[in-house]
Design a protein around this nucleic acid. Structure first.
Lengths: 110, 110
DNA sequence: GTCATATTTGGCCATATAGCCAAATTGCCA
DNA sequence: TGGCAATTTGGCTATATGGCCAAATATGAC
């Protein structure tokens, strides 16, 4: 690929990589419904606070979420809800994969 | 998160993870324009054939691409072009991030 | 100031990934 | 059948990641 394009692909990959973790996907979905503070998310995810904090820092670093200090907590919010549209497509891929699998199974029984 | 949901998040994360690499993003874009064989992609990406082959196997494993043997080459194609819509959103995130950065810079100069 | 609560950071280990080279495999065609 | 071309696989190293625990760092209340 053109070397001038490389930084752009790297920037995109960094953002996508930030989404590429089960707990972080869960967090993204929750934040799409409601802003949340670290404590709430920690309880919902069911992992160590430090682990969740690090996940949030990954998301923030990628620019996917924003954080705001309020009262004695830090509230995180999803920055670009369009991210959620993508999940639908991911589900499509999963469905397509499942269909293929079914086809293969069927041809094996012949 | 509900433990019953965990496999679903893991499945989604696996697909997103497969996209989370600069070369693979490049390959996805190319395959969106045209199906391509390994040799062509190798030249376009500019890496070792074995490296590109492994990238393709990651994409295939995730269900993002299909492969078809033809003549003496294997042609890969993008399975769900909707994936491409997502890139637009990723760009939005990058823009939002850049805007923030500008704001911060501005407030520093005050 | 001191305490308690909320969050982040550092340290550590186990695991996964990307990349190259070399070797194995697969399929076409003379 | 033998060889060539395309692709995949194995082996290796360096690097990054996720997770927990423990420690550090805010921030608000008294």
């Amino acid at each position: 690929m053109k070397s001038s394009m490389k930084p752009q692909y790297e920037a995109r990959a960094k953002i996508i990589k930030a989404m590429a973790h089960p707990s972080r996907l869960f967090i993204i979905e929750e934040l799409n419904k409601n802003e949340r503070c670290v404590g709430e998310l920690t309880e919902m995810v069911g992992a160590d606070t430090s682990t969740v904090s690090k996940h949030l820092s990954v998301l923030k670093n990628a620019g996917l979420v924003t954080d705001e200090k309020r009262a004695n907590s830090i509230y995180y919010a999803l920055r670009c809800p369009c991210i959620m549209n993508f999940i639908g497509c991911v589900e499509d891929v999963l469905t397509a994969k499942a269909e293929d699998h079914k086809k293969i199974m069927k041809s094996c029984r012949k």
